[in-house]
């Protein structure tokens, strides 16, 4: 039943993509509406800034529109746009990380204190701070796995790297995240001192 539904969805999307390739702007808008939230969530986790994430979504869909005729349907439309968004995010994050590094050197943001925050804010800030510890590729692989629930193979495809590299990046990313959260979210994850 689920497979049938998936096939039907795939056929419908192929039809919409075909229309968009023929210049139907409404069809392209339908594709945008269907996938923009996921692309935004990916970009937002990667960049931790709503405006930057919105820019990435815009640019990714714009580039997709420009090269829509080259899209052969070998992967899903969403995976294709995510590949474009991923490259944009990595490039933007690398630029941002220079400033994050400077912040750390001068001591800003080195000792987070979220005790007075409500849980949702505390967790959001904790996750964002933990993600900042990762390199661009570690963060991207980790976000793709967590946000999109992608397999190692799918992450490798989106990032255009080998499966082995994805495994290494995910392992390193998880270790860094755990270390940071154990130190900074004591109630939830315990102290690293207990190790």
């Amino acid at each position: 039943m689920e497979a049938k539904k998936e096939n039907w969805r795939h056929d419908l999307e192929s039809e919409i993509i075909q229309k968009a390739q023929d210049g139907d702007t409404e069809a392209f808008e339908n594709l945008m509406t269907a996938h923009q939230t996921q692309i935004f969530q990916l970009a937002y986790r990667m960049l931790d800034n709503r405006d930057d994430a919105l820019d990435v979504v815009q640019e990714a869909f714009y580039r997709a529109w420009r090269s829509l005729k080259k899209f052969r349907g070998e992967s899903s439309f969403r995976l294709w746009v995510e590949t474009i968004a991923t490259r944009l995010c990595i490039s933007k994050y690398r630029k941002k990380r220079v400033f994050i590094g400077i912040e750390e050197i001068i001591g800003l943001g080195s000792k987070p204190n979220w005790d007075d925050e409500i849980d949702a804010d505390k967790y959001r800030k904790a996750i964002a701070s933990a993600l900042k510890r990762l390199t661009a590729r570690e963060r991207m692989a980790f976000v793709l796995r967590m946000e999109e629930k992608y397999s190692t193979e799918e992450v490798a495809k989106v990032m255009n790297i080998s499966k082995g590299t994805v495994k290494t990046l995910l392992h390193r990313a998880k270790e860094k995240m755990k270390k940071f959260l154990r130190t900074n979210l004591l109630d939830e994850f315990g102290s690293i001192k207990n190790e």
Binding site: Q41, Y44, Y123, R124, M146, E147, L181, E188, F189
Partner: peptide, 11 residues
Amino acid sequence: KFDEIWESTMS
């Protein structure tokens, strides 16, 4: 717990 926190902080 980590997955829960991650889900709860989705934008």
